[in-house]
């Protein structure tokens, strides 16, 4: 079952072709990794999927519905959740309120507090719920973003480089979290850390210079010569 697909999705920024004719599919229930070198167009591609970036051409189909013309907030209400590559939280508000803002769109008022507590427990931030979000360590701020995504109980959770800047221990925790989520949601995961990709992903799409270079299981991608040349061999991963 396909949950998300794109058809001929392209984006150019004032002549700079960031994404070119990308057609790909994400199957329901999969952990689908999107990898590729810096500047490959990954953030731009998911931006077009969730409505932050208007495509120059192409379509986005979510759960059988063409959502290309929907504004971002309507797409979120259809069951997408998005976490930013550059940490984007409410720094001046406390941790629980950050998650509650995400929860209120999905849960009836009496159940918000419970949902917030659960999401904070899932990412291990329960002890910090009254802390001002801006005072959290960088790694904890990333986890807070993930909690804001989780609490929405999305059908598709898009995570843009969630482990960037996390410690080894936090990355290990993240892998466990992702595996736990597999039963609940579909994940589109932009990830630079190869161990996370190899250990968690069901499928991997490789983006290079704005176009899909290869697609397959983690093992197939690892064995793919073109991918190695374009990415794995030259990256810091």
């Amino acid at each position: 079952m396909t949950l998300l697909s794109t058809r001929g999705l392209s984006k150019s920024f004032d002549g700079l072709q960031a994404v070119t004719d990308v057609s790909f599919e994400v199957a329901k229930g999969d952990i689908h990794a999107l990898i590729g070198p810096n500047g490959a167009g990954k953030t731009t591609l998911v931006g077009m999927i969730c409505g932050r970036v208007a495509p120059s051409a192409g379509q986005v189909i979510f759960d059988g519905q063409d959502i290309t013309d929907l504004p971002a907030h309507r797409r979120i209400m259809l069951g997408m959740a998005y976490t930013f590559q550059i940490t984007s939280i409410f720094r001046g508000l406390d941790v629980a309120e950050n998650v509650a803002l995400a929860a209120r769109r999905r849960h009836p008022a009496p159940r918000v507090a419970e949902a917030v507590a659960k999401a904070l427990r899932q990412v291990g931030l329960a002890p910090y719920s009254d802390e001002t979000a801006g005072n959290l360590s960088y790694g904890h701020q990333r986890l807070l973003e993930i909690a804001m995504g989780l609490v929405q109980q999305p059908r598709l959770l898009i995570l843009d480089e969630p482990t960037q800047g996390l410690s080894e221990g936090e990355i290990a925790g993240f892998k466990t979290l992702v595996r736990d989520l597999k039963s609940e949601t579909t994940l589109l995961l932009i990830e630079h850390n190869m161990s996370v990709v190899m250990e968690t992903a069901d499928r991997v799409s490789v983006l290079n210079a704005g176009a899909i270079l290869a697609e397959g299981t983690p093992a197939e991608i690892r064995a793919n010569a073109a991918v190695q040349a374009a990415y794995l061999g030259t990256s810091d991963a």
């Binding site: 971002a72 979120i76 209400m77 930013f84 409410f90 720094r91 803002l101």
Partner: peptide
Amino acid sequence: RPFGRTLIAIRENEERVRMLGYDT
């Protein structure tokens, strides 16, 4: 109220509010 709290969130970070599904 939730409405007022959303306004405060818009003041803090409007793009994030939009990407939480609110019509800012």
